Amino acid sequence: MAAAAIHASAIVDPSAVIGEGASIGAFTIIGAGVEIGAGTRIGPHCSVTGPTRIGRDNHVHGHAAIGGEPQDKKFRGESVRLEIGDRNVIREFTTLNRGTGDGGGVTRIGSDNWLLAYTHVAHDCVVGNHCIFSNNATLAGHVVVGDHVILSGFAGVHQFCRIGDHAFIGMGAFVNGDVAPFLMVAQDGYGRPRGINAEGLKRRGFDAERIAAIRRAYRAVYMSGEALDEARAKLAELAEGSDDVRLMLDFIEGGDRPLLR
């Protein structure tokens, strides 16, 4: 693989590690403690602050701010970091912050994600793989996002909330509770569940039987009118024949925030 290509106007700290075939654009600043994997492209006018590790074959577009200090008044300069996987697309003016000393110390973003313009991932968040964050989508601190999650434009997620695998958050929805796997959430003041993400599941190869089981689980929890304990008991029965329903049940039972219902 070819050597890294660094524009003459870029500023790269001597301690930074730049992988083979990586490129650094004009007027970009790469700070101390930064590792950039092979084949990753960093566009013009970006800043990457360490400790930050970026994997292979990512594409960071212009004016992104990667690895900045957490926006937390309690932060006192502790050694905290940001870790980014492989093959992510990070568009213009995206901001990704490092963790905090009392929040785990690390923000993690997986692989094969698309983070579109002006998205923000705050301190101590964990983002899975194959997610799409549309323009201006925002995560507050300590949010956990599963795999194959879509956040539409201007969606916002409250701190400490969890978003389960395959969930779809609609445009402008504000999420202030946990969103179980497979759900769709739409704007209604704060976001509220509005069915399952059936179209997205079909695109990912879920057959009619699996989708029907997920739909039955949704009805048990979100449409039955029963108290959550009663709905969980019904969900446990449904989970005996479905790994997908088991995933929903495990998610609901593992949260500290209220479930968004």
Rank of each mutant, 00 (worst) to 15 (best):
V89A: 06
C46N: 01
E92G: 00
D112A: 03
L249W: 00
A186H: 09
V34P: 11
T95V: 12
G254K: 11
I54K: 04
P44E: 04
E209C: 05
D256A: 07
M184G: 04
T40Q: 10
A212N: 11
S134D: 01
R53F: 01
A239V: 05
A173H: 12
F133A: 01
E35G: 07
T138R: 06
G146K: 07
G156M: 10
A3C: 07
F75R: 04
E92W: 00
S9T: 15
F154S: 10
G104D: 15
A140D: 07
A213Q: 15
R194F: 06
S79R: 14
A231F: 02
G43T: 05
A227K: 14
G254T: 00
D147P: 09
G205V: 10
C46A: 02
A8M: 02
G191P: 13
S111R: 10
R246Q: 06
D72M: 04
A65M: 09
V143C: 07
R261S: 13
Y190P: 13
V144S: 13
G205C: 09
P193Q: 05
G21N: 15
V143E: 02
K202N: 07
G141W: 09
S9R: 12
F174Q: 12
Y190S: 12
A10N: 12
N176E: 14
I252F: 09
G172R: 12
F182V: 02
L228W: 09
D102G: 12
E83N: 04
R203K: 14
A231E: 07
K234L: 09
D112Q: 02
G104P: 13
I252W: 05
G128E: 03
I29A: 05
S111P: 08
G141R: 08
F168G: 11
A122I: 11
A213I: 07
A26M: 10
H59T: 08
D207E: 02
T107I: 14
R41G: 02
L260P: 15
A10P: 07
A64H: 03
A233Y: 07
A16H: 06
H148C: 10
H45S: 09
H123K: 07
H148W: 12
A3P: 08
R246H: 00
P44T: 03
A38R: 13
D102S: 10
D243G: 15
R219F: 01
S23H: 08
I30S: 06
E83H: 05
S79N: 13
N113E: 03
L151T: 08
L82A: 12
G37M: 10
I196N: 08
A10V: 09
Q187H: 15
E20Q: 12
L201I: 14
G67M: 04
